[in-house]
Design a protein around this nucleic acid. Structure first.
Lengths: 209, 209
DNA sequence: TAGTGGTCTAGACCACTAA
DNA sequence: TAGTGGTCTAGACCACTAG
């Protein structure tokens, strides 16, 4: 794993742990010294986190945890969306894309995967009464469920697809929910104005083991 | 203007001029020497061009002009889309977003604007028979048409909006049309699979002067 | 192996913001 | 003005690819 990725993971953990109480991060040089790397390496990590929406960088002022960046930890049934809704609402999930990619560092650590492992990445949009509610990304370890990508074909439901692969039960280990300004594309998908924030959920599900 | 932006513009001009006949760019150090900057500055410019889809970088192999990157030069009526279509087709244009931003270096040079000037950036999607055809970005010098952003409100037509601002005629100076793989979001907007390329048009329109 | 791009370090100086 | 992030240079070494 590259050094800036290690720094990125460490910072992300600190953000989740609430280490930066006032939301302000130490300066470049302080962080570089703390992590034992060069300032530029820290800046690389910060740049990545900024582009992911986790940090907000202000030239001449400082670096801050993004106001709308909040993490949740749950141990509940992953299908909470369905539970939250009454019987009189129709819920749909539309799969935007399915990819097998190498796992990202912070996701890998939570899934106990090797840095080189492959995951199945599922991007989806959820609808309530045919109205788009949220876009999200889910990761499944490819080695654990080899046929998942094809099992998703025409299913549009993670639970059903996993059942096809022989996994009847799974738990939500970890969910990060962020809100931020949508890109023009996202605003269009969700049929909202560019100024109203979108919900962006990233889920990590695990089998009982 | 920052140095890497100058390098980026220069490279873009060279690409358009067909300087790299075989599609291959010289190595980092050669380019750095040619432009009189450090290697890292060149790499910064290349990184930007890669993210824009103009270049394709292969680790251990080289840097190449993206296969599907082509430029056109026209002097025709900008509403060529409408002309190309028969009377039995309905054509719509939907505005995705309107922003006033500082002008990008290469656009500035073609519009003869100062690097610090503001432009009105209009992102739009064109439809034929209610079927999405293409997404595009248009730039208008903000100083030339001050009220343009608000004039667009509810218009969905650049020509009509410009007319509101007192500009009845304008010409297409310059058009770059690129094709590339769509992002998942773009694929969804255009209702196509992720593997079929999308048309991405960038237009620069000028008043007769 | 030679040549390419990728990462990291080191240090200088610039640009912006707030006190 | 002090302190922050932003840019640029310089050079070392690593990682990948092809011959």
């Amino acid at each position: 794993m590259k050094r800036w990725e290690l720094v990125r993971s460490a910072l992300l953990n600190d953000i989740d742990a609430g280490v930066f109480q006032d939301g302000r991060l130490p300066g470049d040089f302080v962080l570089a010294d703390r992590f034992g790397v060069n300032r530029h390496t820290v800046r690389n990590a910060i740049k990545a986190l900024e582009s992911e929406g986790a940090l907000r960088v202000q030239h001449g002022v400082g670096t801050f945890v993004a106001d709308d960046f909040v993490s949740h930890k749950l141990n509940s049934d992953p299908r909470f969306t369905y539970k939250l809704l009454g019987q009189n609402k129709s819920v749909k999930r539309e799969i935007l894309s399915i990819n097998e990619t190498s796992v990202e560092p912070d996701i890998a650590s939570h899934l106990n995967l090797a840095p080189s492992a492959l995951v199945t990445e599922v991007r989806s949009t959820s609808f309530i009464n045919d109205w788009p509610l949220a876009t999200g990304t889910s990761y499944y370890p490819a080695a654990r469920v080899p046929g998942l990508a094809t099992a998703f074909e025409g299913m549009n439901s993670p639970t059903a697809a996993l059942k096809r692969c022989g996994i009847a039960e799974y738990k939500r280990k970890w969910t990060r929910i962020t809100a931020r300004r949508p890109s023009p594309q996202e605003a269009h998908i969700l049929r909202i104005s560019s100024s109203s924030p979108v919900l962006f959920e990233t889920n990590v599900d695990v089998t009982p083991d």
